[in-house]
């Protein structure tokens, strides 16, 4: 019997779900090998007997929290797709508003601690801010057990296909444990870091085929840190080579996953 697949979205742009539809050439092959039983963005039917559930988006409201537990309870295997689901993603930037200088302070503000409605909620919804519930943005692994992670903003389609193949034939799946620079060198792109641009290629997990430097833009670290040690080494290098304050660089690195600060020294 074909494995039953579901695709879910929490707080996100739904770009990673869309990336599955953008497989185009491989989509019909995929539909031949699996049965999609629950995908709100693409179909009316919604079944809950699920072998593999893919989830994009962060947990960022009380509703998200409830839903991701519901997904976990109905999926034998749960996969986080994209930076929001894996790292909290761009949603975590709200933690740094309202004077929240650290992850924990920001999270407290997001939760409206001390009876206060966080300033950023008022900024968007004015005096009616309390109508729209929000919580700190978290990766889904902060709420439920996750079996596999496919980071990236958006996730890398080829990596998704690779994981599906591995699941189908029962082969182990692992993310690359090298930095984006390795793929960038192999691809022969011009080194932006050497040109004085603070590119996060040296500390970011590979697997995207270094697509951003190939199109002339710096790596923004959307796939997360390749290892906790990488950032310490990068900090020394940034200071010595470019006299850049590590804190400034960290502000940039928050873009796709402030949640990783737990990993930082």
């Amino acid at each position: 019997m074909k494995p039953k697949i579901a695709i879910f979205s929490l707080t996100s742009c739904e770009g990673c779900s869309l990336a599955i539809l953008e497989l185009e050439d491989q989509l019909l092959d995929l539909l031949g090998a699996v049965e999609i039983v629950n995908f709100r963005e693409g179909m009316t039917e919604r079944a809950w007997d699920i072998d593999v559930g893919f989830v994009d988006g962060a947990v960022s409201t009380p509703q998200d929290d409830e839903e991701v537990r519901h997904f976990r309870a109905h999926c034998k295997t749960l996969v986080a797709i994209g930076s929001c689901a894996c790292l909290g993603g761009i949603n975590t930037l709200k933690h740094y508003q309202s004077g929240g200088a650290t992850r924990d302070e920001g999270a407290a503000h997001a939760a409206g601690g001390n009876g206060r409605v966080a300033e950023y909620r008022r900024y968007v919804y004015g005096e009616n801010a309390e109508w729209f519930a929000t919580t700190p943005a978290r990766p889904i692994s902060a709420v439920v057990a996750v079996d596999y992670q496919l980071p990236g903003c958006p996730m890398v389609k080829e990596e998704f296909v690779e994981l599906v193949k591995c699941l189908l034939i029962g082969k182990p799946f692992r993310l690359p444990e090298t930095a984006v620079c390795v793929e960038c060198k192999r691809r022969g792109s011009r080194c932006l870091y050497e040109m004085g641009i603070i590119c996060f290629g040296p500390i970011t997990r590979a697997g995207c085929n270094a697509i951003c430097p190939a199109y002339g833009s710096k790596c923004e670290g959307c796939r997360g840190l390749v290892s906790p040690d990488a950032i310490a080494a990068a900090g020394i290098n940034l200071r010595e080579q470019y006299r850049v304050d590590l804190n400034e660089a960290l502000a940039d690195l928050r873009l796709y996953g402030a949640y990783q600060e737990a990993l930082l020294p």
Binding site: D64, Q97, Y120, R121, Y123, V124
Partner: peptide, 8 residues
């Protein structure tokens, strides 16, 4: 979910 782009 509200996402707060204008704020952040």
């Amino acid at each position: 979910s509200p996402r707060f782009f204008e704020a952040f």
